[in-house]
Design a binder for these strands. Structure first.
Lengths: 142, 142
DNA sequence: CCTAAATCGTTGGTAGCACCAACGATAACA
DNA sequence: TGTTATCGTTGGTGCTACCAACGATTTAGG
């Protein structure tokens, strides 16, 4: 409707789309008592196994200093354990607990619902295109 | 490389893409002494004409309370004027100054460069697809 | 072996963006 | 006229993403 150049700037469009995704996520995760950060780290642990915090940072793209707070939170919820790595005293080994894996299973439905609500305006072909394109755009910062 | 479910979640991919866009934007705008918010409002004023703050909020999707701070900033830089609307004393009329329009022209190059850097990994066809899809995804919150 | 460089976790701080509740002033509507 | 709606504003929250600096520890180079 608005014939502004804003509507043609991909990064602004992306901002808006992200804001919408963010709102949907915040909503769904708040209802489930979690957050995007928490489930991202939890999913990484469940899918790729226990890891040091630095490696979690690399896997998820979350800043190491933020990982500290996230792991604190996960530990206090007893969803992961944090132990000093016997082979490298600099490292903490973060391991999902049984409760952590259960929580992620529970969150799975939430995550699926978030995707569904967010992608609702798109058909299957568009969804595939989006996935392919975003993968390129999300590539590691050079 | 990482075979995690994270890489298949569109909203997470979008997060990462947005973070990358954000970094590029922040970088470019910082060098130009501006910000995404400022240029969004400025562009709206230049493209669609003077407006009340409430209308600026609707045009740009920025919260009215944030528009206050943005207009404060723009006024202090003498890029816009803010005057009480003689026809409706509730409203402020925000009008770009000559300097404001010049500033936007200057920012135009910055904005173009931001898009180019962000879209670099995509070919023309993918860029068109992205634009079309994001437009659907960025639709007004229902 | 010993020193220099790198890595790890942590603290504490910043920033952008998005949003909310509440309020006084003003305008529109019934 | 009285009620409802709109507008600008203040002050606050939350999520995500960063950065600099530090002590502790490990690795790599000479």
């Amino acid at each position: 409707m608005a014939p502004s150049r804003i509507d043609r700037m991909p990064t602004w469009l992306l901002s808006r789309a992200h804001a919408r995704a963010q709102a949907i996520r915040a909503d769904a995760f708040a209802a489930a008592g979690s957050s995007g950060y928490l489930s991202r780290v939890l999913a990484s642990l469940a899918d790729e196994g226990a890891a040091s915090q630095a490696e979690l940072s690399r896997r998820t793209g979350i800043d190491p200093s933020d990982v500290v707070a996230i792991v604190n939170d996960l530990v206090s919820r007893r969803l992961v354990t944090r132990e000093r790595d016997p082979r490298d005293a600099r490292r903490n080994v973060v391991t999902p607990t049984r409760a952590g894996r259960a929580e992620l299973a529970r969150l799975g439905a939430v995550i699926t619902e978030i995707q569904e609500r967010f992608l609702a305006p798109l058909n299957d072909s568009e969804r595939r295109q989006l996935q392919r394109i975003l993968t390129k755009l999300a590539e590691d910062r050079q």
